[in-house]
């Protein structure tokens, strides 16, 4: 049996928002160490991986591994019906065909229970190899969201170049071109670690979608290495992280 309590529904809302634009259905794998979700988007260009460890939950119990096939649009509707500061408990039986969500207001004066039908999803699970990234950049998540939004006005593709001097985002299209450069700041709000310089091209539409996770964290980590997908990681409080991997565009 699974029983997992989030102190605030707001966090679950933010997690669902960070997932639902990129994947429509996915399996949430629950074990005694926490919850994991991994899915490719429909076009198999990107992959999202969510990890929530038990430490973050107000209460967490999972006696036997359980996989919950979720329709994210449906889950979004259910969490939307609750108040952000409600506590929410997810409950599922060992061989569940439904997930129970129980919302409880602050003073416990209002409770709301929803049963969500689960799906039987046959999903491929991909092994993500350990990677030594050549460039690791950390910046405010709002800055990254702003850059992705501004870049996508100019072109479908965004070129990311990273050197010891800084990180540069470039877009070149019919309308003209855009270049945004950020350098390491003494304030520490932008940090850039470079082993070797790298330039790669990515689909701006996907980068933009990843920034749906911005409300989850003030900070975002961007990792690049030659010939491997870009990693964009948002930490989630004491729970863990949401990671987005994006396959690069390569010369024909």
């Amino acid at each position: 049996m699974l029983e997992a309590r989030f102190g605030e529904t707001l966090l679950l809302k933010k997690i669902v928002d960070a997932l639902k634009e990129i994947i429509s259905q996915s399996t949430l794998d629950c074990t005694e160490t926490g919850m994991q979700l991994q899915s490719m988007d429909n076009s198999h260009v990107s992959l999202v991986a969510l990890s929530l460890q038990t430490e973050g939950f107000e209460k967490y119990r999972c006696d036997r591994n359980v996989s919950l096939g979720l329709d994210l649009k449906s889950l979004a509707k259910v969490v939307k019906s609750a108040s952000g500061d409600d506590a929410v408990t997810l409950t599922a039986a060992d061989k569940a065909d439904k997930l129970l969500l129980s919302f409880e207001s602050d003073n416990k004066s209002r409770t709301a229970d929803y049963e969500l039908k689960l799906l039987n999803l046959d999903q491929d699970h991909l092994g993500i190899p350990e990677t030594n990234y050549a460039c690791i950049v950390q910046m405010p998540s709002s800055e990254f969201a702003r850059i992705c939004r501004d870049m996508s006005m100019f072109s479908e593709s965004v070129v990311i170049s990273c050197t010891k001097q800084g990180i540069k985002f470039s877009a070149n299209g019919d309308m003209g071109s855009a270049n945004i450069k950020l350098s390491d700041t003494s304030k520490g709000d932008i940090t850039i670690d470079v082993d070797e310089p790298i330039t790669q091209s990515f689909a701006g539409r996907y980068l933009n979608t990843f920034t749906r996770a911005t409300p989850l964290s003030d900070r975002v980590k961007i990792c690049l290495a030659p010939d491997v997908p870009l990693l964009v990681e948002y930490p989630i409080e004491d729970y863990g992280y949401i990671r987005y991997y994006l396959a690069p565009k390569v010369d024909e």
Partner: peptide, 14 residues
């Protein structure tokens, strides 16, 4: 001209 690669070509099925 650049081509979009697939994420599945980098990460192998388990």
């Amino acid at each position: 001209n650049r081509t979009q690669t697939s994420i599945a070509s980098y990460f192998k099925k388990e």
